[in-house]
Simulated scan of single mutants.
Amino acid sequence: MTGRLAPFPRFTGTEPCQAPDADPDWWSSDDTNDRAAAQLACRRCPTREACLAWAIDHPTDSGDAIWAGTTSSRRRELRREFAFSTKEKK
């Protein structure tokens, strides 16, 4: 964790998860194809960085859903990597 909490991303309506034709269940589905579709859609998201920062800083709230194209296990890896890199700098 970063020591400070990222704010919830400000959605503009241009994000793939906010698109009228997007299935909101893709981001929280247990189906591998749905999750892959969500991850692919996130690649073109204009708020991906803010979304990822929030999901990394809020593991309980982000849960097992796809956030910024990442799975919960990938976000755990990123948290460990970040914690390790901040320890190295001290």
Rank of each mutant, 00 (worst) to 15 (best):
A41W: 03
P16G: 08
E77V: 11
S29G: 12
T2P: 05
C51P: 02
R10M: 07
W67E: 02
T70M: 01
S62M: 06
F8C: 01
P20N: 07
P24L: 05
M1G: 14
K89W: 05
E49A: 15
G69Q: 07
Q18T: 11
D64I: 07
G3H: 14
R43H: 10
S72M: 07
Q18W: 08
Q39K: 15
A65Y: 02
T2M: 11
C42L: 10
F8R: 11
A38L: 05
S73W: 09
W67G: 04
H58C: 03
A37L: 14
R44Y: 09
I56R: 06
A50P: 01
H58D: 01
E81D: 13
A38D: 08
R10N: 10
Q39T: 08
T2G: 06
E77D: 13
R79K: 10
D21Q: 14
N33Y: 01
T71M: 04
T14L: 15
F82Y: 13
A83T: 10
D30K: 09
A83V: 00
W67L: 04
R44Q: 13
H58E: 02
G13Y: 10
D23R: 11
D25G: 15
G69Y: 05
A41C: 11
A65V: 02
T86E: 14
P59E: 08
T86A: 15
D64H: 12
D61V: 05
D64L: 13
K87Q: 14
F84D: 14
A22D: 05
S62T: 09
